[in-house]
Every structure is written in C-alpha cells, then in structure tokens.
Design a protein around this nucleic acid. Structure first.
Lengths: 128, 128
DNA sequence: TCTAGGGGTTCCAGCAACTGGAAGGTCAAG
DNA sequence: CTTGACCTTCCAGTTGCTGGAACCCCTAGA
C-alpha cells in the first residue's frame, strides 16, 4: 500500500506517517520507484499508534507500548504501569486547567464587557 | 533593578525575562555596564505577564492584554472577548482530557497488571 | 594584588510532535 | 504529450521556554 492509502485507512496524515518512519516507529519497505510500500502489519501498527496518540500517550510511551504489544512474553503489569502514569499526568493537567477555568471564570463574570475602560479582568491580572 | 532581583520579585526565571525582552514584551534600559536595568513599571508588567501566563493565556494574548492594560481608552469588551475565547479553549481542552481519562480509566481498570501477557489495554489500542 | 564567587551578557541548540512548503520524480488517463 | 494526482526529500517554522558555552563585571577576602 502506498502512503496515501495507508493514511486513509489509519486516519493519520501522510506527513505524520513519514515522521513516524523517520523516528523509527515503522519501517515500511520501498517499491522499485522509491515509494513506501506498507504491509498489513504496518497498517496495524499505525492504527495502534493513532489510537495511543489519541489517548495522549507521548511518542516515547507509544514506542514502548508498541514493543510490548509485539512482545508475546510481556507482563501486563508493564503496560498497566505506563497507562497509570499517563492517567496521572492527565488528571494533573485536568486539575491545572480547572483551576485556570475557575479563576478566569470569576474574572470574566465580573467584567461588564462594555465600551468603558473599567475592567476587573485587567485589575485581576495586575494584582489589584 | 538587575534581572536577578526582578526575577525574584515577579517569580519568573531570568531566562524567561530575557526571552520576554527578546520578543518585545518588555524593554528595560541598560546600565553603563550593559546590565539590564528594570524600572518599577517593568516590574509591574512582568508580574502582569506572570499572572496572565499562569492563567494559560498565550504569549500573543498576553501581548494584547498588556497593550489593553496600558491603553486608558480601552473598552472592557475587548478584554472580555479575549478572556472568553481563552476560557472556551480551556473548556475544550478539559473535555478532551476528560474523554481521554475515561477511555484510559476503562482500559486500566480491566487490566490485571500481573506477570501474564494478556492485556486489555493493548487489546484496546490494537482495535480489539 | 590576585583570586574566587556570584552576579551579569550573548548566542546557539534543543525540546514535542508535527506541519507547511519548495523542488522535483512517477504514473495513469485522455 | 500533457495534465494532474500521487510520491519523494529536505528545510524551516511552530510554542514558550530551557540549558549550556564562553565570556564580562564587581566585590570581598588572603
């Protein structure tokens, strides 16, 4: 399969797939004409990567997960550890964002948003 | 004030303050010896920037907010618009993260995390 | 007077994970 | 034979810093 087809099938942009090859996540063969030639295995890997990335795993986590995926003698504990680490990161980020949201919401609510200069948002940012 | 003192007072690393100068957010004078010499005004600006950044505003938003802050004839509506846009971004990100969290949580819960290879997390990522 | 230290300066490289664009090769259809 | 849709490589840019090298400045102590 050419890169266009595979991109279509896994939902990743061709650019991204080339990038994944560059950093060694996939290693498609090449046809006579120099075009990348993806196998079904590659298609699977890329779909796997797409899902892992969409769950927010870093590229390095993806690399590890992929190798665990391909390692029949893995321990599921290794996978779970990575996933839980990532889950903790996500939860931390959610909390950070919620704190921002609360603070910002407070300021926004107080601001009239009219044509006058008086502005509680700027006041808040300037330290009152 | 030298960069060290100002960094101390606003809580931003000196590196960051130099970077802010580089991109034109502050323009401290220079002493005879070439050291940056920050005024009280600069201190205020940097504190403002620190707070805006900690609420997640982009640098470009900060630039705009700063100019509105210094513009006595601003309309508070302009400020509110930026803040609401940013709030919407934050809310979108929170939702994305929460979706990730839910999906990941489900997989993690199902995984035994023992020394056997059987792993619902990898199964989920591989598309079952 | 020398030296050590703790400031400060510039400039360059690198992070994550792509994305855009230029310049050009390949292929099938009309 | 040309057109257009593919594909290729390579380089630069994104965001907001951060680290490090190599160097200057200033003060205090031996």
């Amino acid at each position: 399969m050419n890169i266009g087809e595979i991109a279509e099938s896994c939902g990743l942009p061709a650019k991204t797939i080339r990038y994944y090859e560059e950093i060694g996540l996939v290693r498609p063969d090449r046809s006579e004409n120099g075009y990348r030639n993806f196998s079904e295995q590659d298609a699977h890997k890329l779909a796997f990567l797409g899902r892992a990335r969409s769950l927010g795993f870093t590229i390095e986590d993806c690399r590890t997960l992929l190798s665990l995926y391909q390692d029949q003698s893995r321990a599921s504990a290794s996978v779970k550890q990575i996933a839980r680490g990532h889950l903790a990161d996500i939860e931390r980020k959610i909390e950070e964002l919620q704190a921002m949201r609360r603070a910002l919401q407070t300021l926004v609510t107080r601001c009239n948003g009219d044509d006058r200069p008086d502005c509680p948002i700027l006041d808040g940012l300037s330290g009152d």
